[in-house]
Computed example of a mutant assay.
Amino acid sequence: MRRRGIRAGIPKNPRRGKGTRGGKRAFRRRKAYRRARSRVERFFGWLKGGFRRWTVRPERRLATFLAFVLLACFLIAWRILR
């Protein structure tokens, strides 16, 4: 393509190549962040694993969805404390 004089029409990404010191990567390396992230991921894993209905058919109304999530949280805590 170069021999024929054809150039690529792909624009350069302005965000690429701009590195900052630390930034998101340094934040993600913090121990507290990793612990909190682990807890959140584990919680959603429990929700998806133990409550299939939540992942298969999510509720349309916010109040019903919130009630179901709170019920699931209660059942998870109850299983752990039992």
Rank of each mutant, 00 (worst) to 15 (best):
G45Y: 02
R37T: 07
G49C: 06
F74T: 15
R28N: 05
R28D: 03
E59T: 08
L70G: 08
A72L: 06
A36G: 09
C73Y: 03
F74Q: 06
K12A: 08
R34W: 05
V56T: 02
G45L: 04
A72G: 01
I80D: 10
G5F: 06
F68D: 01
L71D: 07
M1R: 08
A32R: 07
L62M: 10
G9M: 09
L47E: 02
A67Q: 15
I10V: 02
R60F: 05
P11H: 06
R53M: 02
P58A: 03
R28K: 12
R57F: 01
G49N: 15
L75I: 14
R7F: 05
R60V: 05
I10N: 01
P58G: 04
R34I: 03
R37L: 15
G50S: 13
I6M: 04
F44P: 00
A67K: 12
N13R: 11
W78K: 14
R42H: 12
V69S: 04
A77S: 11
F51S: 03
V56N: 06
R34N: 07
F74A: 09
G50W: 11
R61N: 13
W78I: 11
R61W: 03
R34K: 15
R82E: 05
F27Y: 09
F44R: 11
R15T: 09
G5N: 04
R16V: 12
F51L: 06
